[in-house]
Design a protein around this nucleic acid. Structure first.
Lengths: 333, 333
DNA sequence: TTGTAGGCGTTATCAC
DNA sequence: GTGATAACGCCTACAA
């Protein structure tokens, strides 16, 4: 692969001049400029990013770690990030953490070693302390999906408690009083916040919080299916279920259908996330939407600001909103 | 950030020795080795990937471009790639092409500039010539999802014609004779191949191919919905529809339900891809599955082979298979 | 406007 | 087993 020196030879100028033409750092006489460009074209010259990075100490790319690039949930977020970074001429280096501590750490180190100019991090397992250190380190970092008090202005989050309240309030509004809740693993702050919102909404409406109506499970279909069944066996008087994400809701719907429980006639259901599949379920799932694309855009803007680009004013906390579809019915009188 | 020199100073050895310890290239006395490791730890030293890349001319990562990282379809593929590359200590640099010519080209150039050790490319718009040149260039490249004769052994594909035949044969087996087909944009070889398979299956069963039963559309829900409606207006005698992908099928199902057409009673439907959502549709969609994860794994193995790792024998062309669910009924007598 | 020269942090090739 | 030293390809003062 051609080097800047070969180009300079062919164009009969110094390497420095080639560099100047390519980077536009200093004016260059248009005649020489043309010669250089021609030589570049002729040699199919592409600057060596290593050498450039070594010289400038910048990579021209920013790193993004999310739990799983392949998940539709994070996909939407990444799409938002890409929307604003592309036009700014910044490229993305993606890396999946797969909800594994070692993986998450490695991913970040990998990106850091490549001297990413900045980092957008969504991590499930890494502890707050690690992230605080990261944010306070030399590389600009934005955290997605987790609010850490010490570094709140580097975090982009939605208000999960509000989301839990919205979901529950929606059911209360439809006359439900015996509302079950399937939480995600309570090790996750998101799951805890949603549970908390559920509880607050209940108590705000004068409905006593009942432990028997709550069960913890995993954030997947199987988790939703099993928990829903268990909950209904334990408390058949339930008229509605709020599940901590859409996959769980999908699993619950399947399991309940197999048991001839009609939705929403016999039981109302609300999910969380408004994942792609929510609208395809039958009946279509009423759920809580997080503005993921917007959040991605915001995270990118925030990072851009930290990178010294002219910043925009930026919202750090987004409000989730209810998406009403077909899984909630007014409770039978 | 600490450099190798600082480490060498602290450990009271030469930079060369530090390098040796870290890379295990040459035996080092265990006493010095320990001193080095301690210094590395103390200084939190991380090798600078730029400098290393410059010296070795390798990046330790391979590049992947797909149409959209965020799509579940490509997500599965990328997951497969990651499964085999991770254990090999190779990292991924992802970049989305977004079915845009300039973007696709830029993505590849970006990855090439970073001196990726290898490339896995899925491209919608780039022409064959470009890809042939790319594969014949200095960097090892594997092409996913397109078979180009001149470089067939660098391509990992499924047999789309076979897929088209399978889908159509399944409908024929259920007694259908008047089968419509909604193709994707015929500019895409995949769409053409599926159409071709459809036609061959028909003719193989002694059913004349009828142009009126075929309509071209876009690879999304709207495309599927509109095309299905148009097709049925034009040819209400149709008893079955084969759509060129699942999104289209989903759109068609929605549109038809709105028109009170019962599936599969009134009309049978087969999709293509077995995307995540296929099983969530109601009724669940009968479709053609491509073994995406396996294909990702294969692409990675293939690339590893080209990178000089011990290669495995590798299949280049995968057979799609029918996934029977609930959208196909035996035709009414 | 252009050229020269030094340095960025590693690895690799020699010697010792 | 270890230490100098010369690349690797680019950028950026500084000079001219």
């Amino acid at each position: 692969m051609a080097t800047i020196k070969e180009v300079s030879l062919l164009a009969r100028v110094s390497p420095a001049t080639v560099s100047r033409v390519l980077n536009g750092t200093t004016p260059v006489a248009s005649a020489t400029r043309v010669r250089v460009l021609e030589a570049v074209e002729a040699l199919q010259y592409k600057p060596n990013a290593f050498a450039r990075g070594l010289a400038t100490n910048r990579s021209g790319g920013i790193g993004v770690t999310v739990n799983a690039v392949s998940s539709p949930f994070f996909g939407a977020f990444v799409a938002g990030v890409e929307q604003v970074l592309r036009p700014a001429g910044i490229h993305l280096m993606l890396s999946s953490g797969f909800a594994d501590l070692a993986n998450e750490r490695e991913s970040i180190e990998f990106l850091l070693e490549r001297r990413c100019d900045g980092l957008i991090v969504q991590a499930e397992r890494l502890d707050d302390g690690f992230l605080v250190d990261l944010v306070r380190g030399p590389t600009p970092v934005v955290i997605f999906g987790r609010r850490i008090a010490e570094i709140a202005d580097a975090c982009v989050v939605t208000d999960n408690e509000l989301g839990g309240r919205l979901a529950t309030a929606h059911l209360l509004d439809h006359g439900h009083r015996r509302i079950g809740h399937v939480t995600g693993p309570l090790a996750f702050p998101d799951a805890r916040a949603r549970l908390h919102g559920y509880r607050r909404a209940l108590e705000g409406a004068g409905v006593a919080y009942d432990e028997r109506y709550v069960v913890e499970s995993t954030f997947d279909e199987e988790g939703g299916a099993q928990a829903a069944v268990r909950l209904l066996e334990r408390a058949p008087e339930l008229t509605a279920l709020f599940l901590s994400n859409d996959q769980m809701a999908a699993g619950a719907m399947r399991a309940l259908r197999e048991r001839a429980i009609e939705i929403p006639t016999d039981l109302s259901i609300v999910g969380y996330d408004d994942v792609f599949l929510a609208r395809y379920l039958t009946p279509a799932l009423t759920t809580i939407r997080q503005p993921l694309v917007d959040m991605g855009r915001t995270a990118a803007h925030l990072l851009l600001g930290r990178l010294g680009h002219i910043g925009e004013e930026v919202v750090h906390r987004f409000d989730p909103e209810l998406v009403e579809r077909q899984t909630v019915a007014r409770v039978a009188a």
